[in-house]
Nucleic acid binder design. Structure first.
Lengths: 146, 146
DNA sequence: TGAAAATATTTGATATATCAAGTAATTTTC
DNA sequence: GAAAATTACTTGATATATCAAATATTTTCA
């Protein structure tokens, strides 16, 4: 067994796909709402129906807690989020979406939907399920072993 | 058709997988060579056998040219790369790996190999090929349409 | 109960991502 | 053959990523 060319590995193609998807998404949502990022939109989606703590959201969007602190600060300043101290546990920060955030989100939803459809055009349901399974295997492999 | 929960989309699991893999890789190569990033190691691999221009490398590792400028600057200062003006076309920057870079790379290779094996543990060849095809579809979809 | 450990978040430092604007070399075009 | 367009990069500004260290609160446990 020899050392594979780095550009021929499966993991390289994962990176390629996600970068292409991010570029498409960012390009398209910027047309609708300039000045919001793909990740910020994802955070709004997650908070749309229920409030969550900052750490919960960070885990869901795979962000480092330090990054999350800064992203939240920006989102609060843009009037997308409200951040308050959790009364049950004062260490925690409760995040909720603002009215403005909801408005923005409604404007963005059709485009988010469209981006997904464009990305997955011509990919069958079975194909997608299969990819999903394989990716989960990889994720679990990486998380369990060191 | 309704709006899918963002955390249940295929693209979310792509993101999850690549982040888990990056974390594993960075953790493990840092044990061998502190102070080098996964992407820097990938750049060394790409330059191992042939010199390339800065833009060529940037395209291969999916980096923005501005980012590439800064990454290269760091890698030159760490004595991983030599950067010279291309004599045929003086706009171009020729990148080549240093002797030190090669030494580092040899030290890292077994771990890079191991990371790939860990990530792909229990993933069959057919499964991998299938995922590769699906990912390529997604990449092409994102690149062609707007 | 009170000290130690754990949890949730913040801040600082440095690296990378991204966009826009700028520079220098090369190519194209009329 | 010179102006205009293109290419390959650089720089500045701002956002995000990551690690380490710090703070405040809560939990655990001897």
């Amino acid at each position: 067994m020899n050392f594979k060319t780095p550009t021929n590995t499966a993991l390289y193609s994962i990176e390629e796909a996600i970068k292409a998807y991010r570029k498409l998404s960012q390009h398209n949502i910027s047309q609708i709402v300039p000045n919001i990022t793909v990740d910020q939109a994802l955070i709004l989606l997650i908070l749309e129906n229920n409030d969550k703590t900052q750490t919960e959201v960070a885990d869901m969007v795979f962000k480092d807690y330090a990054s999350m602190t800064r992203i939240v600060k920006l989102m609060v300043s843009k009037d997308y989020l409200i951040k308050t101290v959790d009364n049950q546990d004062k260490r925690k920060a409760k995040l909720e979406i603002t009215k403005n955030g909801k408005t923005i989100l409604e404007k963005l939803k059709p485009m988010i939907q469209r981006n997904r459809e464009v990305a997955l055009n011509n990919v069958s349901h079975e194909e997608l399920e299969q990819m999903y399974k394989t990716l989960n295997k990889i994720t679990q492999n990486c998380k369990s072993k060191k």
